[in-house]
Nucleic acid binder design. Structure first.
Lengths: 244, 244
DNA sequence: CGTACTATTGAATCGGGTCAACGTCTGTGG
DNA sequence: CCACAGACGTTGACCCGATTCAATAGTACG
């Protein structure tokens, strides 16, 4: 299906979000990369509790990281877009604490973990980028934790959709007021610590207000400014707020 | 109050949790470190939204990282113990997205961010450690997000106390079944996305069950195994669970 | 002792969860 | 072309875990 792409003309490098790499760096990455892997929508990239000595970069498609409890309750930790790096979170010689699942068909670049140390020795600039990527992902998890812990259902959903919309735009996915977003309501519920039913009702409410439309794998933002105000509407206790 | 300590005999290195460093590394750290800073209990180490070009290591004491909303709702992201590293999360030339506050009197080692790049060039081993530290902190935030999103109040509190108890033990704080834990119920509430009142009632319940006692800045675990079972008690829907 | 936190407790209320049906859309195969 | 299955979205009724409000204890300290 998808042919191997050389790192030199990696499609990700076309976007402003990425640092331009030097030729030597690119050559190293090319050697570091062991292969490419395709995963189809809905399939598991890494099973929770499984040991893995691989690191991944998302080359194309959507995925998410999650953890779950024994009885099935599941929490999505963050969503993964092209350019995201995964695998550092788990300790070497240790089971992964999280699972990773593909939302759409996904293409991954695979790197063997063993050679990571080599990267640190030879290319401090890449090591630096890696740390930055890791720190940045934590920032995203932080934001999600703030939402789940302290925001109301409508605020949470608003924030999440805005977040995904902006992230997608930053890597050149979608255009105008809409992006392709291959997630179902259950995913939103699991990401935000809500029940499926309540997620549906809240989403419906946002739709009625003309703020968002999520259908057929497409997210359309009706009024970004108003949605942003709603999602960040935290100046009053819940019961005292006018009905937007 | 606390006198400057040379990195060579850093008290943290006494504990098994830390990698033994080579002489050259230690010498570098010593040069990297710009100074030491003392912060008293309750004071702010880094204000939310403030710009800072410093990195910190907790040398002694307890602190926490948090984010909050405009109306005062606050979410504690994670607690910081001796050996924890902070500052990577915020992007260079950017306001900090989180605040850091001292729970007890805290001593910090201060490093100027500018020289970080130098560390990556000269000591890949330290760079590697740094990435590991960052990844590890994300793991902790992940765990907390799972709790807040998907666990019941009693499970959350149980998990948090167990977590703090174990972490404290791993850096040699406290002994036996008790550790000093300089946090109030409001902190627990803010860390777990609960209200103060409900936190109190749940804590009271745990106390009545003889599982924990949190008073006067000391946490005592009555029955770790039973507490662990309670906190991880996720095989049945809430209403079907026997009353422990 | 008074001031100021922090912990405790009860009552009323509510946001969100659970249960249970019912649509809607797709793909599959007869 | 219809019948059926399975996945996903929608809705209403009811319930409960958790929040909010309000007031009362401790406790620490100047």
């Amino acid at each position: 299906m998808s042919s191997e792409v050389s790192c030199a003309n990696c499609p990700l490098r076309r976007h402003a979000a990425f640092r331009p790499n030097e030729a030597a760096e690119i050559a190293f990455i090319e050697r570091f990369k062991s292969r490419q892997r395709s995963v189809s929508a809905g399939a598991s990239i890494l099973r929770e509790g499984e040991r893995s000595d691989r690191l991944y970069t998302i080359l194309s498609g959507w995925a998410f990281r999650h953890r779950s409890l024994g009885d099935g309750r599941r929490q999505i930790l963050n969503f993964l877009l092209p350019g995201d790096f995964v695998g550092l979170q788990q300790e070497l010689d240790h089971d992964a604490m999280h699972g990773i699942e593909a939302l759409s068909d996904v293409t991954l670049c695979v790197f063997p973990r063993q050679r990571l140390w080599h990267l640190y020795q030879e290319f401090p600039s890449l090591a630096y980028d890696l740390t930055w990527l890791c720190a940045h992902e934590e920032l995203i998890v932080d934001e999600n934790l703030l939402s789940v812990g302290r925001r109301s259902a409508i605020e949470r959903i608003g924030m999440l959709l805005i977040h995904l919309y902006k992230r997608a735009a930053s890597v050149g996915i979608g255009g105008g007021d809409a992006i392709p977003l291959p997630i179902g309501q259950q995913h939103i519920a699991d990401a935000l610590g809500l029940s499926l039913v309540h997620t549906n009702k809240t989403l419906r409410r946002l739709h009625t207000l003309g703020l968002v439309e999520l259908r057929g794998g497409t997210l359309r933002i009706g009024d970004l400014a108003r949605l942003q105000r709603l999602a960040d509407y935290h100046a009053l206790p819940l019961h005292a707020r006018p009905l937007i």
